[in-house]
Design a protein around this nucleic acid. Structure first.
Lengths: 193, 193
DNA sequence: GGCTTTATTGAGTGGTCACTCAAGTATATA
DNA sequence: TATATACTTGAGTGACCACTCAATAAAGCC
């Protein structure tokens, strides 16, 4: 009896993620979303409920894909190799919506209002941090880095540096590759000798 | 003949800077400004012309104060000492509007729209970078760091790390002091032996 | 083909946005 | 004190905001 929707829900979420990522929460209007996703207001609200609900789905997808990418990279290059490769990969990615981390952007934009989406972005940053921590732990377990390092502390510094790098990469008066290379050198320097 | 305004223009700009800093560009309405600055719309527009014009003044003040603070610090602690001290000072500052750098926030928020204020924030980040570069150069000239380092490259990495740190400092699941201390250690490690 | 159930449409909602302007008020000079 | 010159006031502007809903169209099952 039911009629199927004519759109691919998951593709729409990915598209919305890119718009939100580029323009931010306040900078994206329903009109923007409706025209890009080719949905009339009625369909939009039937499908997602609200702008914030769609934004939450977009954040979730962003986190999921980010973690998956790091884990794939770790399978290819090993944990330390993945951590070392990531900075330059981020800088050299072919036209992403923005080089700046969407979680960091959302967290910063909405924190002052105590908006629920800021809390969610913060929680997702925490999950990303755990992902980095796990990789440093694995590197340590493999003996790639010395046992005197604290993986959680290394991960916090690493994530912080990465957020700075990604913001720097959006500027055109800064050599982000040089920064990425220096961050990678810091990782390399941890390698147990 | 003329009547003097009843407000202190410079104090109003500082107040506006704090509101914009905390809430961002899109997150701050004229109503917010009018109620906080105790200005009716007519007075507001007579005094500043537009929301964007006031934001531009706020950015300018932010940059000016930031550079002045670094230079004062350098007079007290020397160039390398100032660079080393700054990370922890930023983290431990008593309730600023936001730990996140206002220039970085503005740049990230408005870049997608090619807003003029984003370009201005970007330019100011460049001036801040020059300030850091000058301090590294001075440290080198004094022989505090080795001659094999490139001050511009050190400054770019330093500024990038600082932006990451300041975002991290707004999270409550991260030990920003530890990150600040690690950044300071990196500076210390440059010291010529 | 008839019927049920859902998707789609787009004009319309009240509210807020940045901003304007004419009228009223206070002050420094002459 | 009279007057010119500002500053101050606040209701009002059209545009846009997120969002609603009744009408219409299309698909699956009998």
């Amino acid at each position: 009896m039911p009629r199927k929707p004519s759109y691919d829900r998951d593709a729409l979420i990915a598209q919305a993620r890119d718009i939100f990522w580029r323009q931010g929460w306040a900078g994206t209007s329903l009109k923007d979303l409706e025209s890009e996703l080719k949905l009339k207001p009625g369909s939009f609200y039937a499908a997602f409920g609200s702008k914030d609900a769609l934004y939450a789905l977009a954040l979730q997808k962003y986190l999921h894909d980010s973690v998956a990418r790091m884990q794939t990279l770790a399978e290819e290059l090993g944990p330390l190799g993945a951590l070392k490769a990531q900075p330059l990969l981020v800088v050299e990615a072919a036209d992403p919506p923005s080089r700046v981390c969407m979680l960091a952007k959302t967290f910063a934009e909405l924190r002052a209002r105590d908006h629920e989406l800021s809390a969610q972005a913060g929680a997702h940053l925490g999950e990303m941090l755990e992902c980095f921590t796990a990789l440093f732990q694995q590197a340590q377990a493999r003996g790639e880095i010395g046992g005197d390092h604290d993986p959680a502390r290394l991960a916090a510094r690493y994530q912080s540096d990465l957020m700075g790098l990604r913001l720097s990469a959006d500027r055109d008066d800064v050599d982000a590759r040089a920064i990425a290379s220096d961050i990678a050198s810091d990782i390399e320097r941890l390698r147990a000798t």
